[in-house]
Simulated assay, not measured.
Amino acid sequence: MQEHRFTVIDLCAGVGGQALGLEEAGFEVTAAIDIDADSCGTISGNRPHWYTVQADLKRLEPLDHAPLDHADVLSCGLPRSPYTIAGKQLATVDKRDTLQAVLDMASFVRPRVLLIENIPTFVRADKFEAERQKVREAVEDLGYRMTSGVLTATDFGVPQHRAHGFMIAMHPEDLACFVWPDPTATRCPTLGETLLESMASRGWPEAAEWAERACEPAPLIMGGATGRGGADLGASRAKSIWARWGVYGGSIADTAPGPDFRLNHEIEPRFGLPRLTVDQVALLQGFAPDWKIAGRKTSAYRQISQTTPPPVAAALGHRIAEALRRSPRR
């Protein structure tokens, strides 16, 4: 007998990392929603059978879209910028903020699981206790209880020092069957191991030398936030960290280094170190090479830099599915 597949609606879907990971865990993605046209193009191009909606979640009318009527899991990767410690403007300044829109959708859909992802400060920092309390009160009104945790990308084979905060709300009987995923037993690949083939693809003779020196998982991929400007690997401190691992972070390349490029760690980084391409950044985020990203370079980098790595979402998805199957409420 074929095992029942649980369903997912993914909000603020972006490049599709969280939805893709849940799909890998056996879920059926019934709808994906994002405000960005290129993000929706990415999802539609890779998963044409998903019901994709380009809309502002704060103004979306779910009654206009039949696939939004129900799902076992309502998933959302909230916009990150408002939940940084240094952030000067919270998402909650507007009464119809994105977090409230997610909670409104949960009230409409009434899923068995509400899954919210953001940076770790969202689930840990004192600054955002009011936002966490807002979630608790909303899910308690639905008869759920909430748990939160932080998962580290390298624990799940993603070659990047990256952490993600998650809030999960379920009925108490379901939640009693949930356990957070354990790290995988295999060693996490390094930056060099992950990108060696790509760096050598255009005949760069020093690719192996570069890869040998890049002997740890990559630094945190950041930058690319909407309205921030062009595609780069973050602020000055982030760029200096990338430079120590042999990458110039001031911009994103169109192609891998060619046969004439010369590696030099001693001179100005932009002259002696390779830059990453969008496709290489996607590999460092745990995406397979066949996941094609729509849009021009800045848009494509913004999509991939802000996402949940699919292997992290998949590990969490397996545990959510196990909880739903083990629960006496099933």
Rank of each mutant, 00 (worst) to 15 (best):
V109Q: 02
P111Y: 04
V113H: 00
V113N: 01
I116A: 03
E117C: 09
V123D: 00
K127I: 09
F128T: 01
F128G: 03
F128K: 01
E129K: 13
A130H: 14
E131P: 01
E131L: 05
R132M: 10
Q133Y: 08
V135A: 10
V135T: 11
R136P: 00
R136K: 12
E137K: 14
A138F: 04
V139G: 03
V139R: 02
D141Q: 13
L142Q: 12
L142I: 08
Y144Q: 14
Y144E: 10
R145F: 00
M146Y: 01
T147L: 09
G149P: 03
G149M: 02
T152F: 12
T152C: 10
T152I: 11
T152H: 15
A153V: 09
A153K: 08
T154C: 12
F156I: 07
G157K: 10
V158T: 08
V158K: 02
P159A: 12
Q160S: 15
H164T: 10
G165A: 07
F166C: 06
F166Y: 15
M167R: 02
M170D: 05
M170K: 05
H171M: 08
P172M: 06
P172R: 07
E173N: 13
D174Q: 09
A176W: 07
C177M: 15
F178G: 10
F178A: 12
V179M: 10
D182G: 04
T184R: 13
T186D: 15
T186N: 13
C188G: 06
C188T: 15
C188I: 07
C188S: 08
T190P: 08
G192A: 10
E193H: 09
E193Y: 09
T194D: 06
T194G: 06
T194M: 07
L196W: 03
L196D: 03
L196S: 04
M199V: 06
M199W: 04
M199A: 06
S201F: 05
S201K: 09
G203W: 06
E206K: 11
E209R: 14
A211E: 04
E212L: 12
E212G: 12
E212M: 11
E212T: 14
R213V: 03
A214F: 04
A214Q: 03
A214K: 01
C215G: 11
E216G: 01
A218D: 05
L220S: 14
L220M: 13
I221T: 06
I221D: 00
M222L: 13
M222D: 08
M222T: 15
G223H: 03
G223Q: 04
G223I: 06
G223N: 05
G224C: 09
G224T: 06
A225E: 13
T226W: 12
T226A: 15
R228H: 13
